[in-house]
Design a protein around this nucleic acid. Sequence first.
DNA 1: CTGTTAGCGCATTCAC
DNA 2: GTGAATGCGCTAACAG
Lengths: 350, 350
Amino acid sequence: MAKQWTIKEISRAAGVSPGTVDRVLHNRGSVSEDKKIRVEEILSKVGYKYNLHTSAISLKKEFRIVVCIPSCAKGEYWQFIRNGIEHALVEYSDIKISCSFSTYNQFDVYSCRNAQDDILENLPDAVILGPTFEDETRDFCRQLDEKNIPYVFVDSTIEGTRAVGAFTTDQPAGGLLMAKLLSGMLPEGSEVAIFRAKRIGNQESHNSEERQKGFYSHLRDSGLNIKEGHFSMFNVGENKSELLRFISRNPRVRGIAVMNSRGHIIADILSENGISDIKVAAFDLTDNNRRCLKNGSIAFLLCQRPEMQGFSAVKAAISYLLYKNAGDSPTAMPIDIVMKENLDFYKDFI
Amino acid sequence: MAKQWTIKEISRAAGVSPGTVDRVLHNRGSVSEDKKIRVEEILSKVGYKYNLHTSAISLKKEFRIVVCIPSCAKGEYWQFIRNGIEHALVEYSDIKISCSFSTYNQFDVYSCRNAQDDILENLPDAVILGPTFEDETRDFCRQLDEKNIPYVFVDSTIEGTRAVGAFTTDQPAGGLLMAKLLSGMLPEGSEVAIFRAKRIGNQESHNSEERQKGFYSHLRDSGLNIKEGHFSMFNVGENKSELLRFISRNPRVRGIAVMNSRGHIIADILSENGISDIKVAAFDLTDNNRRCLKNGSIAFLLCQRPEMQGFSAVKAAISYLLYKNAGDSPTAMPIDIVMKENLDFYKDFI
DNA sequence: CTGTTAGCGCATTCAC
DNA sequence: GTGAATGCGCTAACAG
């Protein structure tokens, strides 16, 4: 048990007042060079560690954090990130933060710009950012930089920005893992198919693309034959006929890898049509995917700890706001493999 | 954002002093019935929530927690539980707790009894318990109950005790998952083998047994042929010849499931002897297993979040010590499936 | 530049 | 039975 030093003790040891130590700690200036050095020496010698909570109670200011992420229905991916954020707000409820959400439609650039503009008008103390549109987000970050507003990424990060934290998944690694797992559980001589969502406009989902790269990088060597299919996330009606046609044209396909969280769309069609010899894999433990995992129509899911991302993002924001601690490189979340047999244990965790 | 009510505000609303509110909060008595009711009404109406940290700073008492777990080498399972505990102590360093470790040899009942006796002499405020020997631990818990010392389980729990928290894994589920995953990745017509550690004396590891039950429960239906093998965790020299003999006698075995964390012992022998067509699976992400996963000699591991167990145990102990919050039923950790491809992301997480 | 001090939310002691 | 006062570690405003 390392002893916890207090500011008062430090000040005594340095022969200065607590106020001076506080000034040194916060780089508030107005401290003579020699005293500053003396204090800093002791500080590092005893390994002084801030007390997040006691310092927070004496803080008058209320920090305003705004979260800019896609809106989504209950039980979908972004909802779990949101849960993690809200969990953190409870965990850190002694720290005076007000948090508001500025959500946008992830398929509509304009709604995203609107959300970002709102934030720039409000000038919060920090923002948590779930990026969907690369260019817009990069632009937004530049403006936040100008205004000295710190931001933290969840889900994925945008290169060339100066975030104070980022909690993401290595998407190519996810794709590769999916390729290996799925191909490993198919009978010899099978083919795999990769399924991607058709998107409105030409905006292609960045995460899906990255995953697909990883997926192909594994199967390039294995010599397995890969087919490509598409489905719609909106015009669900047409999916059935299209999928059945795909299957009849590619009778040796025994595994379908869905590059986003909509595996349940494929899985439901298959099980409704009594097709049980094709294994489906997808990403994220959404409510729908959970259901399909349970009834066996999805073989496994790869999950990226959305709650933990949200939780960590809030923690990182607070740590920066209070102590200017910026996280170094992005933190890659574990990629959890969830199957019917361990599904029940992935619940409510951060 | 739900507003956080303070004791002072509550007292104003109830027309009493802060001291009175505190007395009803802590059931300290010396409060007239009518005031008590008035305060409790407001308390529940506004959903008053303790502030763990601010209440801790004003607490004079230093809580003494002692951790009674098996000792182990660096990079082994119990070490990670310990890491989680130490992580929590840092996270909650604003709360005055002193934590000491009373470790025992997990293969020696006497050392366990000694560790427990030490604790009973010291009379700490709470103990965190990693049970190995069932009878001894049950007895120990009974004595703690008598002395009103709360305890929290990590790793596994003992039936019929009154722990204020337990963070464990569903071992049969782990065994079942291993059976499914391993058998699913073997070529048709293969056999699987289950390997268990020979133990000193007749004390059999409870966890291994539970896992084995789960393992068999899956394969009973699948009709797969299961062989049984043994290895020594101590007399490692004899393992090689024994394993090679086993393999030559059972030439169709293509998968070996090791029911504890010593998969690396089997994996190393196999790879040293150029045997690469047998997949090994085991439990826990120990340093040795990590190495084998990396070099491909282990196919996958099932892991039970030891750091999180340790972390949660400390949190539960604190929550009980401060507010008498006892966790309801044991909390089952997720069972993480770790393979070469997602290995790198399972590091340093709680 | 520097020391002093009030006050954050809470627990506790001490008068009344 | 009850309220007022004090102190925990820390920040910030203020006086010197």
